[in-house]
Structures are given as structure tokens and as C-alpha cells.
């Protein structure tokens, strides 16, 4: 049992080393900084600039969080501070379903609902033509996917606020909303931020759904209606051809390494904050 536990802990390190070794060839020629900021992507010539993919990832993630955060926060507040058991009985299963649906189903939904909506309803107001496969589509689909994660984290954090604090505030004549804003939200701000960081890292790594709606055009996106090409989509789309060129494979493994490192740091930071809250709670 000890061996299994230790192995699991070490597995994080093994994963890092494995990906690092695989991406070493592409790191030999150029510095990490050059790779991250160059925007030329020509695998045939051995030019690998990750800037378009990184900006694509950032755009899609940002849109997703901006959309999901208010919805999740308000839902979680209602469920912890206001809702009667009857309401919870309906909302929790709905959130369960959202959390459980596979990424590819969200992709299908995105292709059938969101992409046509953007291309027919939204885009004509701003640009002449858009296929709908855009940053906005990727952001919306990702946003929907992180809502259940955010809501469940928020509910956990809000429930950690002692009942006495709320009662003290209510007994002074504050309304529920005032109590929520000035007591609950203020108390849980670090937890809310940690959960958001966690949701960001989840959104960054999401692959198939994004791949299906992002447009996959290599280039730095400049707005919501540009196509984008996030890192996970890059890896998934090119795995077939990568074996033909050693440096290409190495470059894709470097993309996986970037994702891994970012997600690792984000997770460590936010989990530390969340653990502390949990401990105080227990």
C-alpha cells in the first residue's frame, strides 16, 4: 500500500520528466522564450512558434471564465443561501448531468447549436462573413463545461462559512443579500479566487469539444469572431503526422509540457488555498 501511494505521488514527477525528455530536441535549438513568443509555425522547415496557440488558448479560456463565473456564482449563492430543498432536488441533478456529459457531446452541441447561431445571428452584425467556428464558440462551449465544476466548488466554500456569522448579520437587520455580499462573499474571497483558477486550468486543457468548434486556423486571434487554435487542439489534430518528423513530435510534446506545467502550477496554488479552507471548516 505504501508503495502504491508513493508511486502515485511520484507519478506527477515521472510525467514531467517523460514529457521534458521528449520535448528536449526542440528545446535544444531554441530557447523556451523564443518558442513561446515566435508565431511562425512551419513543421516542414522546423520552425515551431507557439504564440498563436498560446494566445488561442488564452482567448478561449478567458471568454469561458467570463461567461461561466457570474452564472456559477449566482447559482451557488442561491443554492446555499436561499434555496428550499425542493429547488435543490431539481438543480443538483441538472448540474450532475452537465458535469457528467462527455466532452465530445458538448462538441456536437457546439457544432449544431452554437456555431450556426454565431454565424447566422451574431457575426452578421459585426463582420461580413463568419463560419461560426470562432473564439466565441470555443469560449461558450468551454464556459458551459466549467459551470458544474465552479458551482460545486463554490457551494463547498460557501457552506464553510459558520452559520453564526450569518445569523449575527441577519439579527442586525441586514437582508439576506446584504449578508451574502458583506459576510459570505467577503469571507470566501480567497476560495472563490482559488476555484476560478482551478476552472481556468480545466478550461485550458479541454480538447475534443474545443477542437470541434474553434476553427483550427493557425494565427493569433484578434477578436471574438476570429478562429483560434488552442494548444490541446494542436496536439490532438496532428498526432497522426507527427511521427514522420522527429522534431515535429518533440514540438507537440513540448505543447503537452506547457499545458502540464501551467495546469500543475495552477492546481497546486489553488488546492493549497482550498485545503486551508477545508481544514478550518473541519
Amino acid at each position: 500500500m505504501l508503495v502504491l501511494t508513493l508511486f502515485s505521488v511520484l507519478f506527477v514527477a515521472v510525467m514531467f520528466v517523460g514529457l521534458y525528455l521528449k520535448s528536449a530536441p526542440v528545446l535544444e535549438g531554441k530557447s523556451v522564450w523564443t518558442l513561446l513568443t515566435a508565431s511562425e509555425w512551419r513543421p516542414m522547415k522546423g520552425e515551431f512558434g507557439f504564440f498563436p496557440f498560446i494566445t488561442g488558448t488564452l482567448w478561449a479560456t478567458m471568454v469561458a471564465i467570463l461567461l461561466a463565473l457570474p452564472v456559477s456564482l449566482l447559482t451557488a449563492i442561491y443554492l446555499t443561501e436561499y434555496a428550499k430543498p425542493v429547488v435543490k432536488k431539481f438543480v443538483f441533478p441538472a448540474l450532475d448531468i452537465l458535469a457528467g456529459l462527455p466532452s465530445v457531446i458538448y462538441g456536437v452541441w457546439g457544432v449544431l447549436v452554437i456555431v450556426p447561431w454565431i454565424s447566422q445571428r451574431v457575426a452578421p452584425h459585426f463582420v461580413e462573413f463568419s463560419t461560426g467556428y470562432t473564439v466565441m464558440a470555443a469560449g461558450i462551449v468551454l464556459g458551459v463545461m466549467v459551470i458544474p465544476l465552479l458551482v460545486s466548488l463554490f457551494i463547498e466554500i460557501f457552506s464553510s462559512v459558520p452559520k453564526e456569522l450569518r445569523e449575527a448579520s441577519l439579527s442586525l437587520g441586514a437582508t439576506r443579500w446584504q449578508t451574502t455580499r458583506r459576510v459570505v462573499l467577503r469571507q470566501t474571497l480567497p476560495g472563490i479566487m482559488a476555484s476560478t483558477v482551478l476552472a481556468i486550468s480545466r478550461a485550458m486543457g479541454e480538447t475534443i469539444a474545443v477542437l470541434m468548434v474553434c476553427g483550427c486556423v493557425i494565427g493569433v486571434p484578434h477578436g471574438l469572431l476570429d478562429a483560434c487554435y488552442p494548444l490541446p487542439a494542436l496536439i490532438a489534430n496532428n498526432y497522426g503526422e507527427m511521427l514522420s518528423m522527429p522534431l515535429y513530435e518533440s514540438a507537440l510534446m513540448f505543447a503537452a509540457l506547457i499545458l502540464f506545467v501551467v495546469v500543475l502550477i495552477f492546481n497546486l496554488l489553488s488546492r493549497m488555498v482550498l485545503y486551508r479552507i477545508e481544514k478550518k471548516n473541519a
Binding site: 514529457l19 490541446p232 496536439i235 499545458l259 502540464f260 495546469v263
Partner: peptide
């Protein structure tokens, strides 16, 4: 050790499946 292990599993839970795929492939 329990703290480290829980942290490790939470981090592993957060690692995107595409990274698992790439790592498994190597």
C-alpha cells in the same frame, strides 16, 4: 505524506486528458 498524496491526486485529476494521451503515447 497524506497531505502530499492528496495534493498529488488532486493535481493528477486536473491534468488534461490530452496530456495523459501524449504521455501514454511516449
Amino acid at each position: 505524506l497524506a497531505y502530499a498524496a492528496r495534493m498529488a491526486f488532486d493535481v493528477l485529476f486536473g491534468v488534461p486528458s490530452i496530456v495523459y494521451g501524449a504521455f501514454g503515447f511516449t
